[in-house]
């Protein structure tokens, strides 16, 4: 009994004598009552008040990307074009796929146009914050400006590739119907998941480096689960509903029907995709807001 007491006493003395061990520091620090901070800046400027900054950053993004590159801005156009040529070779020449309403090349290009925008925008937004930490450390501004500016730059790329698509249509002698205006709401539908996932990927990428791996896998699978190399109209129920739940798929489907006919797709086909798109946008924004105060610390 006595021995046991001695031993435990000795242990206690030893414990007290070694100052600054990790355990002690840990214990003391966690016992400090930490009340949540309250920070007020009377002059807070909103995201909307930073729109000029967004445009300036997007312009910079475009210039930085195309400066010191041999073909410059043509890359935005060349990329989908090269992909289209390879795909046409594989599907039409090798596999003998025939498409019904329009030539395969036109069908494919109308899909890859949207898909490229979506994947490039999300990828760009994902890296936009870690690439521009030097701005975060120096200035207080709504950090969402960075991924949004990066997405805006990809919108410019998208518009450029629309020009190529118009040339392609002219080459095949395809008419452009009045219903082409439906491309605008389809583009808006596509922007919902693009911005939502862009913000989400940007926020998570600052914390975990494997986010880019996950995004890569999702894009590879998504390519086949989105009507790019095939027509959504060839997909039958019950799969059709699931296919069109994907906002990117719905946007491609809607714009193809608007352009190639026979008539614009019915409105109710877009409701699930619209709701899902809004949910992704809202969720992505909320998670971004939640995580943004930690960015300057982890980077």
């Amino acid at each position: 009994m006595a021995v046991a007491t001695n031993v435990s006493n000795a242990h206690a003395v030893m414990w007290a004598m070694c100052p600054g061990t990790v355990h002690q520091v840990k214990f003391m620090a966690s016992s400090v009552a930490v009340t949540p901070p309250s920070v007020t800046f009377t002059h807070q400027r909103s995201l909307w008040q930073h729109r000029h900054l967004m445009v300036a950053l997007a312009g910079r993004d475009l210039r930085a990307r195309y400066r010191q590159s041999f073909l410059g801005l043509y890359w935005a156009v060349l990329n989908p074009l090269i992909q289209t040529v390879v795909m046409a070779f594989v599907f039409v020449t090798v596999m003998g796929v025939t498409s019904q309403r329009v030539p395969f090349v036109v069908l494919y290009f109308s899909g890859i146009l949207y898909w490229s925008f979506f994947t490039n925008a999300v990828t760009g937004a994902m890296g936009s914050i870690s690439a521009q930490v030097y701005l975060l450390e120096k200035h207080r501004f709504p950090i969402a400006v960075l991924p949004l500016a990066s997405i805006l730059a990809r919108v410019v790329d998208f518009v450029l590739s629309l020009g190529v698509f118009a040339l392609l249509l002219a080459w095949y002698g395809l008419p452009v119907p009045e219903t082409i205006w439906l491309w605008l709401p389809m583009m808006a539908l596509l922007l919902l998941p693009t911005i939502g996932l862009g913000l989400l990927a940007a926020a998570l990428n600052t914390l975990y480096r494997d986010v880019s791996q996950i995004v890569g896998i999702v894009f590879t699978l998504g390519f086949f689960l989105t009507p790019i190399v095939y027509d959504a109209d060839t997909v039958q129920a019950p799969y059709r509903w699931w296919l069109l739940l994907n906002p990117v798929a719905a946007a491609i489907h809607g714009s193809r029907r608007a352009l190639f006919g026979p008539e614009p797709a019915p409105l109710e086909e877009f409701v699930p995709a619209l709701l899902l798109g809004l949910a992704i946008l809202g969720g992505g924004y909320l998670i971004f807001r939640r995580l943004q105060s930690t960015f300057t610390e982890v980077l």
């Binding site: 930490v34 009340t35 949540p36 901070p37 309250s38 920070v39 007020t40 800046f41 009377t42 002059h43 975060l136 450390e137 120096k138 200035h139 207080r140 105060s293 300057t296 610390e297």
Partner: peptide
Amino acid sequence: AGTLAPTTGMLEVRG
């Protein structure tokens, strides 16, 4: 400057 959030305490910047 507002680029780093405090863990605890109160800050008010007026202007």
